[in-house]
Design a protein around this nucleic acid. Sequence first.
DNA 1: ATAAGGTTTCCAGTAACTGGAAGGTCAACC
DNA 2: GGTTGACCTTCCAGTTACTGGAAACCTTAT
Lengths: 137, 137
Amino acid sequence: MNISHAAKASGLPAKTIRYYEDIALVKPGRNANGYRDFSEVDIHNLTFLARARALGFSIEDCRALLALYTDTSRASAEVKRIAQDHLTEIETKIADLTAMRDTLSHLVRTCHGDDRPDCPILTGLGGAQHGSDRIQK
Amino acid sequence: MNISHAAKASGLPAKTIRYYEDIALVKPGRNANGYRDFSEVDIHNLTFLARARALGFSIEDCRALLALYTDTSRASAEVKRIAQDHLTEIETKIADLTAMRDTLSHLVRTCHGDDRPDCPILTGLGGAQHGSDRIQK
DNA sequence: ATAAGGTTTCCAGTAACTGGAAGGTCAACC
DNA sequence: GGTTGACCTTCCAGTTACTGGAAACCTTAT
């Protein structure tokens, strides 16, 4: 299976697959002509990686998860720990973004957005801090 | 005002302030000894930048906002457009992360997390797609 | 023979810093 | 005057996870 086929099967761009080989996440074989040759297992691993990345796991987390995935004697505790840590990270990000959104949407709502120079958004960013206009660090 | 003072006043690390000078976001003066010398306006702009960055605006957005900020004849419409675009981005990110969180927290909940090798998280990532275990791209 | 469409490697760039090295400066203390 | 310690300077490299592009090779069809 050549790389474009592997790309289609896994949903990852060919460039990304080459990169994953570079950093030793996958180790496809090679044909006589030098082209990469992906086995079913390679495709399966790439699909695994695509899913884990879609869930926001870092490459290093993916490397660990993939190692655990192929080790049938692993304990699920280790996997759960990685996933739980990542879940906590995601929840922190959601909280941060939600706070940003609340502040920003308030600023946007109060800005008339016409051709007048007066702008509560810039005033808010510029340091006029009072009441709900305050921007948290 | 030297850089460590500016850092304290703006809440930005000194390294970041030097970087902002590098990319021409601020242009502090220099003392005879070569040390940077920050004016009140510089500090004010740094504080503006710190706030805008805390709201997740990109550096290039910050550059545009800062230019609009110092241009008292600007139209608020342009500012509102940048802010609204950014707000939309943030909302997209929140939605993406929320979807990740939902999938991942489901997987984490179903994993017993002990020393047994059986693990629904890995099974979910590995391609067993049925019902609510399916992972969205 | 050549053209189109694969594939290969390698190099550079992205965003926004951050760490570290090597060296200059300043204020205080002995 | 010398030395220590805390500043400051510049510059270079590394981070994350790719992505774009160039130059060149392979395959298949016309």
